[in-house]
């Protein structure tokens, strides 16, 4: 167990050194990412200048939601930036490199690189929570904890979705863009949708647990909703690993892969 953690820590340290090998460039990318997020949030500031509320939600709620997504997604690409290459790695055969190691391949696949701009997302989460969402510093631990769980659900969902190329390599290009789909839904409040769409967002595409439910949990101080987020992290995390392992068995049984660019 401790050997595994040591291995992951070494992986992470190497990635961070690579990501910050040109520190000024990395830091400026990080800073520009903060700016990027804040400009985007202006759309919502302007919206709530004009309209008093969006079905009970105000500026602070939407900002909190944006912060949760920024934290979860940012931390994911900062620590496990290989996430976005997963499908391609499987299809083009570079997965073999990871299979040759005496470890479960998933961690090293996900943690194959670090995207410095992700730290910019994480940093902007704090600016957004404290400033736009008007939360106090004492709220931060809970926000961080819930956002971590939300990020885990996000990572699990994106992993599981990209595993589809184990069975159907032809959809590589769609699988590669899937994270954009998830991200695009996550940054918007979901209580505006009708029941059918919400059902999807709570089950097959568990986007609700990536931003909406954590925010509702804090707004309403509802411990059940908080537990739901952590439970989702465990359930979807386990499911993703199971799907990956099934795919891996198929891969190792020597099924022919077709590269489709």
């Amino acid at each position: 167990m401790s050997a595994t953690f040591g291995y992951l820590a070494a992986l992470l340290a190497t990635n961070l050194r690579a990501a910050f090998s040109n520190p000024l460039q990395a830091v400026s990318q990080l800073a520009l990412m903060v700016l990027n997020n804040l400009i985007f949030l202006l759309i919502w500031v302007l919206y709530f200048e004009r309209f008093p509320e969006l079905r009970g939600w105000g500026r602070a709620d939407v900002a909190m939601l944006y912060g949760v997504t920024a934290f979860g997604f940012g931390l994911m690409v900062a620590l496990a930036g290989g996430m976005r290459d997963l499908a391609r790695t499987i299809v083009d055969g570079s997965l073999d490199v990871h299979l040759g190691r005496p470890r479960h391949p998933l961690p090293s696949l996900l943690m194959s690189r670090s995207v410095p701009a992700g730290f910019g997302d994480v940093a902007s989460a704090f600016v957004i929570w404290l400033w736009f969402a008007e939360r106090s510093v004492s709220d931060l631990p809970l926000l961080v904890l819930l956002s971590l769980a939300a990020g885990a659900v996000m990572t699990a969902t994106m992993t599981a979705a990209q595993c589809v190329v184990f069975w159907w390599p032809g959809v590589l290009r769609l699988a590669e863009q899937f994270w954009e789909v998830i991200l695009m839904i996550t940054i918007y409040p979901q209580h505006v949708f009708g029941p059918a769409i919400r059902l999807v967002l709570f089950t097959v595409l568990p986007v609700a647990f990536m931003s909406q439910v954590p925010v509702e949990a804090i707004r309403e101080g509802d411990p059940l909703k908080m537990l739901a987020v952590f439970a989702a992290a465990i359930v979807y995390g386990g499911t993703a690993i199971a799907i990956f392992d099934r795919g891996l068995r198929r891969y190792q049984s020597g099924n022919q892969m077709v590269v489709n660019r």
Partner: peptide, 13 residues
Amino acid sequence: APAYWIWQKLVFV
């Protein structure tokens, strides 16, 4: 890319 993302957000706003 960073220059593009900033420009894109300005277009959005």
